[in-house]
Write a protein that binds this DNA or RNA. Structure first.
Lengths: 344, 344
DNA sequence: TTGTATGCGTTATCAA
DNA sequence: TTGATAACGCATACAA
């Protein structure tokens, strides 16, 4: 148990060298010859010396630390994204500070503040659902921190945005159902003011239009994100005079609601009802029948977001972030829930 | 866009004060009167000053930062634990640095090293499945970092360990099945060398013994953690001459394997087969029939682990960690999978 | 109540 | 090749 932390001074004293020389040796400075360098490193190991990043970072003005702010760490999508970010940061020798906003604007501001104080070099953020203004985000940029948004973005902020191509995936998912022979497809969406949800709706509509499918307006429902509400809506539509024969939902939980409704009403999936969800949750492969879903490749999204920072840092060091949108393609996980067997 | 960071020197200059005075004012030092303090804070806000934690921490010798090392961030159990830790840390004004070992001993060592360099005050760790030695953990303690283990612990390390009471929960879960009228219960376990799994087995056996139930030795199986293996084992047992009429598994994924096996063999759950899982995964409430499972209260576990650090810090500051085990009680989530209807 | 001086551990610059 | 020095930004002991 050592009382005082071992520093380069201790190493220097032991070897009768100067601290600056030791520092250079440890950092593989070219002016130090191999023998001396090895001797210093040897002694450092012997004394169980650990480089003090705090001091070095203060001196260097960079913390080699990246901050991440997400609504909730323990939401599958975000924990996957973070896992991807961590992996990339680790490769690049950077540390990761994690904050959660818990969907609160106030906590989000506090998190930004913390990260500025911590001198992070970059902030990766997916904004809370409450967030409508962006001074706090701009403030990070003012403090010379690279800001990269992912998934849930504020449109008007200059900088890199990393997004799923959800328009495209919704289009493809819908098309997959049309190809499987479903004739009248309903849509269960999320809050319209969130970009990713409006995109999903737009993708859905494009596929419907292309197929020249006529859809009653009551088939298109926004803001039914909670499973219970999705279920209620499915109940209503499936018991109506003109029931849909398929659903595209923007979450797997909604899809689950539809499944329960169908079961209750004695409607068989996929024979009489097709179903396509979003997010490819763990349970989606496990329920019966297997739920077709859009895999958002969330870990890849994290990797892409972190990589965007490192690439910018390496190539355009100094210049400000480009105003760029990076799309991470989703992949369709086709399962039994749209496997109708026969077409038409 | 400010070129240079605003420091207390800038504030001091603007107000014709000394930097130390500004520092005191910002930190609510008692020797500063209200008027002066407010004036300084006002100016700080005006200049968009942000306290530099790096510098302060270097000066203070404490980073107000806690490091967490888990096998994988995006495993439900761990992301829940982390969410709890984050919440507590946030309350206490501490930051969180997250590392994942990805079940690799090497990465775990690297993570410890990173956290030592980062000057974290405390490391919360759940060791990788590869970890057999503990020098790296002791080294953290040598560097004056509080070490708190949770879930997967190295027995011989002095300090606080935060654990689920899995012995007790396995016992209760088994008992719940006995009470529901199941007569011959089989056990599907995990690697025996991991404490939490041997505890689950022991709890199971205690309940069996108490009920004076005679169990064929082939009912007790360790090391069948993967779902596929659990399924194979269930196939074997359920097709044997003396099939069990219930299973306790140590994971919900195993239980899912049992469900598939039962379905294939035309055995009805819960009528002819009871089933109790572990971890209360998201899907457990969603599968049909609902899977009874042990809820490990993982977020609470994270809160408890972090709280243990803060309490120790506040009350016994300076002294080394006590050798203490904190148990976080699990809760049984009883669902249809053991709802047999009639007893006997 | 206010200010001065010093050090936390590192690294870059410059000089020897 | 080696070393002295200053600086990063802050907070504390001490002096005024």
């Amino acid at each position: 148990m050592q009382k005082k932390r071992i520093t380069i001074y201790d190493i220097a004293k032991e070897l009768s060298l100067s601290p600056s020389y030791v520092s250079k040796a440890l950092n593989d400075h070219p002016s130090i010859n191999d023998a001396a360098r090895e001797k210093v490193k040897q002694k450092a190991k012997e004394l169980n010396y650990k480089h003090n990043s705090l001091a070095a970072n203060l001196r260097n003005g960079s913390s080699k630390t990246i901050g991440v702010i997400v609504p909730a760490i323990n939401q599958r999508f975000f924990s996957d994204v973070i896992a991807g970010i961590e992996e990339k940061c680790n490769q690049e020798g950077h540390s990761l500070i994690i904050c959660q906003s818990l969907e609160s604007f106030e906590l989000e501001c506090k998190a930004i503040d913390t990260l500025i104080r911590q001198n992070v070099d970059c902030i990766l953020i997916s904004v809370s659902s409450q967030t409508k203004t962006m001074e706090h985000l701009l403030n990070a940029q003012v403090h010379d921190i690279s800001l990269i948004q992912f998934d849930r973005c504020m449109e008007d902020i200059q900088g890199i945005k990393v997004l799923n191509n959800t328009f495209d995936s919704a289009y493809k998912a819908t098309k997959a159902m049309i190809d499987a022979g479903y004739k009248s497809i309903a849509f269960l969406g999320g809050p319209a003011h969130i970009e990713t949800f409006s995109q999903r709706k737009a993708g859905f509509l494009k596929a419907i239009e292309e197929a020249e499918m006529l859809i009653p307006y009551v088939y298109i429902n926004e803001n039914v994100l909670p499973m219970e509400e999705a279920k209620k809506m499915a109940d209503k539509l499936l018991s109506s005079k003109l029931p849909p024969d398929a659903f595209l939902t923007v979450s797997d939980h909604q899809a689950l609601g539809v499944m329960e409704s169908a079961e209750k009403l004695g409607i068989s999936i996929p024979k009489d009802l097709g179903l396509f969800g979003f997010a490819n949750e763990d349970f989606s492969a496990l329920v019966k029948p297997g739920l077709s879903s859009v895999d958002q490749m969330s870990k890849q999204l994290g990797i892409s977001a972190a990589s965007a920072y490192f690439e910018h840092k390496k190539s355009h060091s100094g210049t400000s972030m480009p105003d760029e949108v990076i799309y991470v393609d989703c992949e369709l996980r086709i399962r039994d829930s749209i496997n109708r067997g026969s077409k038409g």
